Computed example of a mutant assay.
Amino acid sequence: MFWTEELFGVKKPIIAMCHLQPMPGDPYYDQEGGMEKVVECARHDLLALQNGGVDGVMFSNEFSLPYLTKVRPETVAAMARVIGELKSEITIPYGVNCLWDPIASLDLAVAVDGKFIREIISGVYASDFGLWNTNPGETARHRAAIGAQNVKMLYNIVPEAAKYLADRDICQIAKTTVFNNKPDALCVSGLTAGAETDTQVLTQVKNTVPDTVVFCNTGTRKDNIQRQLSVADGAVVATTFKVDGKFENLVDEKRVKEFMDEVRKMR
């Protein structure tokens, strides 16, 4: 039995993203609406996701565009405030994602009792955000130093808007990532948020590392989730839950329920 079944209580869990609005320091922060607006939008999405029946939720600074690879402290502080205010209303397992900084993500997880993080933790990439380097050894040691050994680490091995600098195929990357880093899960993505993950790539990764949890990380919809879950051990889902299926909108509870109805047919 994978750890996911123990944590979420189901096979092939759906982790829904709770995308936080721009926060202080972000280029598109709404100073007039302030942090109260950020909290209220997050509360709306959290409750819609929970009412819709998802298995877990992950809080992310998704609208902190363009992203940093070293997140600033004001972002971590703002995210901690939002999650802290909502904590009494959270009824399902939750994690965090400070884009794109695994150290900041671990710090936030420890502060708010998050059960998992998802990040780019290993590899070197050419990306829209510049040359993107990582230091998985430093991240692993920081995890131990702050007492985060029980925080599950989901390694995104196909980062959005970026390409691995070395000429290596996805199976090689999956195999060596598992050997060198012992990730709790691998996440396989499409090109951008909302872009469908290639089922053939998912299959290749899962066949390469059958004893490791593999998540479909982007682009699942009501019409493809059964196909994706026939291969993947779960999915991280966001855009399809939004009003009209648009990335920038708030969550539509009806769309969540319809999606989860399809998921339950798989289980």
Rank of each mutant, 00 (worst) to 15 (best):
G114I: 08
T177V: 11
L186G: 01
A166I: 01
V112G: 06
E119A: 12
L191F: 10
A126L: 11
G147A: 09
D223Y: 11
A140C: 06
G123A: 09
Q204Y: 10
R143A: 08
N133I: 09
R227Q: 14
T134Y: 06
G130I: 07
F129L: 05
N150L: 06
D167Q: 12
L186K: 03
T220A: 15
F179A: 15
N180D: 15
F129E: 05
V201Q: 07
R141I: 08
V110H: 04
L165K: 00
V214A: 06
E196N: 08
K206V: 05
G137W: 12
F215I: 07
S127T: 08
N224L: 10
H142V: 10
L131F: 13
T134S: 07
E160F: 04
N135F: 08
Y164K: 03
D169S: 12
S127A: 12
G194L: 12
Q226S: 14
I120V: 15
R227L: 10
R221H: 14
G123V: 04
R168Q: 12
A185L: 10
S122Y: 01
L108M: 06
A148L: 02
E119G: 01
T197F: 06
V214S: 04
D211G: 09
A148F: 03
I173Q: 04
Q149V: 03
S189L: 06
A126Y: 07
E196C: 08
D223A: 10
L165T: 05
N135D: 15
A111S: 14
V214P: 00
N133V: 11
A166S: 09
N150P: 00
R141P: 00
V201A: 07
P183I: 13
K222W: 07
G137Q: 13
D211N: 15
N207M: 09
M153P: 00
Q204R: 12
V213Y: 05
E160M: 14
T203E: 13
K115Y: 08
K206W: 05
T199N: 08
A174C: 06
